[in-house]
Write a protein that binds this DNA or RNA. Structure first.
Lengths: 226, 226
DNA sequence: TGTACATCAGTGAACGCGCGTTCACTGATGTAC
DNA sequence: TGTACATCAGTGAACGCGCGTTCACTGATGTAC
C-alpha cells in the first residue's frame, strides 16, 4: 500500500474517532455537524468530501468498518455454549461482556444510542450487526447440551432476547464506569461495590432467561387466540 | 379555568404534538430545531419562550406530562399477574401491549428512540418512567401465585428484564404497522401474517423469560467469583 | 537514475440559509372599582 | 353594568453565527519513460 493510501486510511480512522468522541459528550450522531467533525479531525471542512458523501455515509461506514469487528471479537470471546458448566458459564460470560464494554466505552455507547437514532443508514447497519451477533450466539448455544432439546427456531428467539437483554444493561454499566474516572478516590470502593451488585443482578436476569429456555419445550405450541 | 389559560394549554399540547409528528419523519429529537417546532405549531418562533425555556425543557415536559399517562394506562390494562391462567395470560398481555403500541405509534416511537438519545433531560425522564413501569409490573407479578416463591428483589429484576424485552420489540412492530398503511391492499394479508408471526415470537420470548422465573429459586445464591 | 506529467488529499475564500435569541409591540382577555 | 387599567400569548423585525456545499487552488506523492 502506498504511503498516500496509508495516510488517507489514517484520516478516515480519524473521522471515525472524531464521531465517537463527539458522541461521548452527550450529543447524538444526528445532531453532530460536518464542521464539528472536521474541526475535531483537524482538517478543513471541504476535506470531508474526499472521504464521505455526507454524514449519513460516515455513520454507516463507522458501524460497518469499526463496530462490526468489536462485536465479532466479543462473540469469539463469549462462546457461551462451549463449556460444560452451564450455570457458571452464564456468570462468566456476563462478566466478560460487561468488561468488554468498559474496555471500549465509545463503541458500545454509540451502538446503543444510535440503534434507534435519527440516521436510517446507521440504524440499519446496527440492526444488521445485532442480527449477526444473535446468529453467532445461537450457533454457540447449539453446542451446549443443556439446550439440545430446543429447536433452531426457538434457539434463535432465545438468542435475540439474550442480545437485547445484554444491550439493555450497557448504558447503566457505562455510567458506573464513568463515575469511576471522575469521582474522588474515597468513593472508588463504593463504586466497585455497585459494579459487583450490577454484575450480580445482570447475571441473575440472564439466568432467569436461560433457565427458562432450559425448561422450555419447543414442541409446545404457543396459541394466540382463545 | 379562564379561557386564556385554556388557550395556553391548548398551544402547549400543540407543541407536544409537533415534536411527536416531527420525530415520526425519521429525525431524532435533538436534531429538531426550535423554529421547526414553532413552524409546525403555526406560531412565530418567539412565541416558543412563552411556554418553554428551551427545547430540552419541552422534551422533558413532553415525557412527563404526556407519555407518563400512556404508560400508566398500559400498566393498568396489563395486570399480568391478576388472572389465574398464567400461561395464556402472557400471550394475552403481549397482544394487548403490542396493540396499545400500534394505537399511539408516535408516543412509543419517541420513548424508544429517545431512551438513549441526545437530550439528557429526556433520557432521565424516560428512565424514570420505565422504572415506575417496572415497579408496577413487579407489584402485579406479586399477586400471581406462580411467582409466590420469588422474593421481592428477584421479582424486581424479572420485571425490569421484562420491560426491557417489551421495549425491544417496539420498533420492529411499528415498522410492520406502518407498512400496513402504505403498501397496496394485495399485501395486507401478507403483513397480517407477519404480525401474527411476530406476536407468536414475542410471546414465546416472554414465555422463556417468565417460565425461567417460574423455575427460579430465589434462595439460590449467584456467585460471581471462582 | 532523472525528468516530466498525473493524481489527489487537503486548502481557503465565498455563498446563501436556517438557526436561537433580543426587543419593543399589539390586542384580546381578565380584574378592580 | 360600565369604565379604566393590568396581564400576557402571540407578533415581527433584527442580530450575529455556524451550517453544508461550490469552486479553483496547492503541493506532496506516484507513475511512465
Amino acid at each position: 500500500m502506498s504511503s498516500r493510501e496509508q495516510k488517507k486510511l489514517q484520516t478516515r480512522h480519524a473521522f471515525f474517532n472524531a464521531v465517537l468522541d463527539l458522541c461521548m459528550t452527550g450529543q447524538s450522531f444526528s445532531s453532530i455537524s460536518l464542521r464539528q467533525v472536521t474541526r475535531e479531525v483537524g482538517v478543513v471542512p471541504t476535506a470531508f468530501y474526499r472521504h464521505f458523501d455526507d454524514m449519513e455515509s460516515l455513520g454507516q461506514a463507522l458501524v460497518i468498518e469499526e463496530l462490526g469487528s468489536t462485536l465479532a471479537i466479543l462473540s469469539q470471546g463469549l462462546q457461551i455454549g462451549r463449556k460444560r458448566s452451564f450455570d457458571r458459564q452464564i456468570a462468566k460470560s456476563i462478566q466478560l461482556f460487561l468488561y468488554t464494554v468498559s474496555d471500549k466505552p465509545r463503541y458500545w455507547q454509540f451502538l446503543v444510542s444510535e440503534r434507534f437514532g435519527g440516521s436510517e443508514a446507521v440504524r440499519k447497519a446496527i440492526g444488521n450487526l445485532m442480527k449477526l451477533h444473535a446468529q453467532s450466539l445461537s450457533e454457540d448455544l447449539a453446542l451446549q447440551p443443556a439446550f439440545a432439546h430446543i429447536n433452531a427456531f426457538d434457539r434463535r428467539l432465545l438468542s435475540e432476547a439474550g442480545v437485547n437483554m445484554f444491550f439493555s444493561w450497557i448504558i447503566d454499566w457505562l455510567e458506573l464506569s464513568y463515575s469511576e474516572d471522575h469521582d474522588d478516590e474515597a468513593d472508588l470502593a463504593e463504586i466497585e461495590k455497585k459494579k459487583q451488585l450490577m454484575l450480580h443482578n445482570c447475571t441473575r436476569q440472564a439466568q432467569m432467561l436461560f433457565y427458562g429456555a432450559y425448561n422450555w419445550k419447543s414442541s409446545e405450541e404457543t396459541r394466540l387466540n382463545d
